[in-house]
Write a protein that binds this DNA or RNA. Structure first.
Length: 281
DNA sequence: CATTACCTGCAA
DNA sequence: TTGCAGGTAATG
C-alpha cells in the first residue's frame, strides 16, 4: 500500500491516537519474522512500559518515538496497516503483532502479504535509517537545483530514478507514474537528458501529486488503511495509474501500460512523448 | 543492469 | 491456472 502520502497519513493519525500513550507490552505475535531487529526477546523487553513521545515519518517508515531513546520503526511495504483499536476488537489471521496500550487499547500491525517489518531502534539505528534515504520531496531541501543536480549525475531512466529511495525518499509506483504524467515526461527518458524546463516541471509535479494525495488521505485500491482503519480518497483522482485503456484526461488518447524496471508503468503516449533520437530501450 | 525471492489474494 | 499487486533486499 504505502508510499509517502499513505505513510504520512498513518503517521499523522498515530500522532493523535498515540499521544502520551504507554505501551504495556507485546500482546500477540502471530508471525515472529515481522520483528526484523532486535531479537524477539530483546524487542519485547525493550518496548515494555515505554511512553510514546511523538510519531513521525521518514521516507516510507513510520517512526514511533518512545522515551528511553528508542524508536519503533515500521515499514508497511505492500499491504501493511497500523491500527489503534479497543482491545476487544475482533482480530483476524493477518494481524501479526499486537502491542497492548494502557487504557484498554491496542496498536495492531496487520499485513496480508507479510512483507512489512518492525524494528526497535536506538539512536545509532535511527541515524543509519535516515542516512540510507535521500531528500524528503516535500521539504525545503528539495529544490529545482538539487533535483537538477541529481538528475545530471544519473544515466538511468526516469522511472527507475524516481523509485530509488536513496535519491528521493517516499515515491513509489503510483506517484512516480502520476508525477511523470503531470510533468509530461515519458518514463523511459534518461535522467540526465532533461532540459531546465523539464526539471522544473518534474519538481513541481512531484510536490503537487504528493500534496494532493495527502490532502485526500492517501490512495486505497485494496489494502491501504489509515490509523483509524479507513480507506483513503485519492484513488479516484488517478490520471494514469491503473487507468490502462481509459482515455487520457488531457487529450483522450488511451492510457498505455508497459513494464519498466519490472514495474507496471502507466502513461499517455501523446502527452508524454519520447523525443526523436532519444533512447527508449 | 536484470532477475529472483519474499507472501497472499484476487481477477482475468 | 496464470498473472498481477502499493516494496525492497539479495542475487547474477
Amino acid at each position: 500500500m504505502p508510499e509517502l502520502p499513505e505513510v504520512e497519513t498513518v503517521a499523522r493519525d498515530l500522532a493523535v491516537l498515540l499521544a502520551d500513550g504507554v505501551i504495556e507490552g507485546v500482546g500477540h505475535l502471530g508471525w515472529p519474522k515481522v520483528i526484523q531487529s532486535p531479537s524477539v526477546a530483546a524487542f519485547e523487553q525493550g518496548i515494555a512500559g515505554k511512553r510514546v513521545i511523538g510519531v513521525a515519518r521518514r521516507a516510507k517508515w513510520v517512526l514511533i518515538h518512545l522515551d528511553g531513546a528508542k524508536t519503533l520503526a515500521v515499514h508497511l511495504r505492500m499491504s501493511g496497516a497500523l491500527l489503534v483499536v479497543p482491545a476487544e476488537t475482533a482480530m483476524d489471521c493477518h494481524t501479526h503483532l499486537v502491542l497492548a496500550l494502557a487504557g484498554g487499547r491496542q496498536l495492531r500491525f496487520r499485513d496480508v502479504r507479510k512483507f512489512g517489518r518492525v524494528q526497535l531502534l536506538g539512536p545509532d539505528g535511527l541515524t543509519l535509517l535516515d542516512a540510507a534515504h535521500g531528500v524528503e520531496p516535500l521539504s525545503e531541501a528539495f529544490t529545482v537545483a538539487s533535483l537538477a543536480g541529481c538528475l545530471s549525475r544519473s544515466g538511468v531512466r526516469l522511472k527507475a530514478f524516481l523509485l530509488d529511495q536513496r535519491i528521493i525518499a517516499g515515491l513509489g509506483n503510483i506517484y512516480v507514474d502520476e508525477a511523470l504524467f503531470w510533468a509530461s515526461l515519458h518514463p523511459l527518458r534518461v535522467a540526465r537528458s532533461l532540459t531546465e524546463g523539464e526539471v522544473t516541471a518534474l519538481h513541481a509535479a512531484i510536490r503537487q501529486v504528493l500534496r494532493q494525495a495527502i490532502a485526500w488521505g492517501g490512495s486505497t485500491f485494496r489494502d491501504y488503511r489509515n490509523g483509524y482503519g479507513k480507506i483513503g480518497g485519492n484513488q479516484v483522482h488517478f490520471s494514469v495509474y491503473r487507468q490502462t485503456g481509459k482515455p487520457c484526461s488531457r487529450c483522450g488518447t488511451a492510457i498505455q501500460r508497459i513494464l519498466v524496471a519490472q514495474r507496471g508503468t502507466h502513461f499517455c503516449l501523446t502527452c508524454q512523448p519520447v523525443p526523436s533520437g532519444e533512447q527508449t530501450g
